[in-house]
């Protein structure tokens, strides 16, 4: 039952992403054409709210369920991986109009062909795992 709460969190997230049209490839297309505020509104309002929440946790104003302060890990400051990896991810995001979270949403909505997308994404992750020692990070 410990994992039940995570299913509930995921449920509302998946439900919300569908209703906000964030799973729509047409919305992603519109975003990259700067033709509407909608997607930016979702991201900006989501990030600002999360920013306040995260900073409250960082400063110890809110503690975790265990009663201790949340520990955050700073990300490594080596730049090539973020630029190159980010660009590759962005190309995939715009090509299918789907990011890694949204593939679960589309699969759940009933687009069974996304098992192929999921398998392909796992293959991409696997190939990264095999080749990462030769890639610039």
């Amino acid at each position: 039952m410990k994992s039940f709460k995570y299913i509930v969190v995921g449920f509302f997230f998946g439900f919300g992403m569908w209703k906000l049209e964030a799973i729509s490839t047409f919305r992603i297309f519109e975003m990259f054409h700067f033709q509407s505020f909608h997607m930016y509104g979702i991201i900006i309002s989501g990030v600002l709210t999360s920013l306040i929440i995260t900073q409250l946790f960082r400063k110890g104003k809110i503690k975790t369920i265990k009663g201790i302060e949340k520990q955050f890990n700073d990300k490594d400051r080596t730049w090539p991986r973020y630029i190159i990896g980010g660009t590759i991810f962005g190309m995939g995001w715009a090509l299918t109009g789907v990011c890694s979270g949204m593939m679960f949403v589309l699969l759940g909505a009933g687009y069974t062909v996304f098992v192929v997308f999921l398998a392909s994404a796992m293959l991409g992750t696997f190939v990264y795992g095999l080749t990462r020692r030769w890639l610039p990070h």
């Binding site: 990896g85 190309m91 299918t96 789907v98 593939m103």
Partner: peptide, 9 residues
Amino acid sequence: GGFLIGFGA
């Protein structure tokens, strides 16, 4: 698209 997402992420 799936491959780029998985590799890039």
